[in-house]
Design a binder for these strands. Structure first.
Lengths: 210, 210
DNA sequence: TAGATTGTTAATCGATTAACAATC
DNA sequence: TAGATTGTTAATCGATTAACAATC
């Protein structure tokens, strides 16, 4: 499947997907040219064609690519048609935001429940998802075959929670705590650093390259 | 300043900064080799040296780079020693999380206040920051010279809020709403898409390249 | 048909890495 | 000193783009 795909292409495929699903219904039912996609995203058209060639069955000269097919092809390739369970640790603002976030479904994720250690909220629900005590994570994750976790707990308990997660069989962690997490081999952590994102946006965009 | 710096280097510099400030105090007071940094971040050591050469005054053979100096040099280059005001529109969970987030200061950002249109919370404070009505944004931003804004309002009002922001003189927008924003020329938008981040983490990491 | 578009091959461009001299 | 490290130059590698034939 992933034959000949480069890391750069892999980074652009989600951009195409994102752009295509953001198009109005009317356009999603028609065709779109690589040239149009390239222009909208500020890329080279040949590059777009090459990228699309690696995942789609191809477009037609003069007509372009069938938009719906393209969305499906990219989505399938990236695995967005899976249904993967996700758990969230830490029911602060970020944690709550995750439970209430609507957009995950489109990418094949189901937020299953939240975990916290504040007895006052254990057993309550947020956006229809139950809040469990953190000590119940291992059982829950094994039972539901969960291998994706989001950490939104405070910095000082992040490592502890992380260890609980990896012990529970979680292999992918999205970490909002501003700290480096030590994980066993094979577990992949992505550190979400909002400050850095903002810095890259406001500080480096516009820096002349070369 | 930005002479000869490539886009790839620009993407790695924040990683170095992040890694260096995450080191324990004891190590921050000493020296660090490019080799060590490279190993910690999974990069090539020559590459790290080249990157550092573009912003720092250099290291010493056998000893390495002065850690504190490196942090300062990178921080200065990336503008982390500025003090830029930031406003947040939308006082839902994400918005509140932004106001309460501690990490911005380290990167030279001050979250000044929040905006919303719910009369019940106008005038209250979150994490010591006042909540104003969205109609007051223009006045506030001009008065405080704000040019960075964060949008965490619901999808349906995002474009409206975005326009209010750009009218208020804001030039950099971090957008959490899952929608493409139309902005005037010169305004830069970064779309934060948590679903996509999670998808890239759980779906594409591990895909064999080439 | 003519023109727009795809897709491929070859050339260019840029970034990474290997090799090595210089330095402490 | 010997060994670890920096920093530079040249070679390699990979990605982008230009050119063009094929297609509808």
């Amino acid at each position: 499947m992933a034959k000949g795909i480069t890391s750069q292409t892999l980074q652009r495929l989600p951009m195409y997907f994102n752009y295509l699903i953001s198009l109005p219904e009317s356009k999603q039912n028609g065709h779109i040219s690589a040239t149009a996609i390239a222009e909208a995203l500020g890329l080279n058209d040949v590059q777009v064609r090459k990228d699309l060639a690696s995942v789609s069955s191809g477009g037609r000269p003069k007509i372009g690519y069938c938009t719906a097919e393209l969305i499906s092809d990219i989505g399938q390739f990236l695995g967005f048609e899976n249904h993967d369970g996700v758990v969230v640790a830490g029911m602060g603002n970020f944690g709550k935001a995750m439970l209430e976030h609507k957009g995950f479904a489109e990418y094949g994720f189901d937020i299953l429940c939240g975990f916290d250690c504040d007895e006052r909220i254990i057993g309550t629900e947020i956006a229809g998802r139950k809040i469990y005590h953190i000590s119940e994570m291992s059982e829950f994750c094994h039972e539901h075959n969960v291998d994706i976790g989001i950490i939104t707990v405070p910095e000082k308990s992040a490592q502890e929670v992380c260890t609980i997660m990896t012990d529970a069989g979680i292999r992918y962690i999205l970490n909002f705590a501003p700290i480096h997490l030590n994980v066993p081999r094979g577990v992949i952590v992505h550190n979400e650093n909002i400050s850095l994102t903002l810095a890259m946006l406001a500080r480096t965009s516009g820096m002349i390259i070369e």
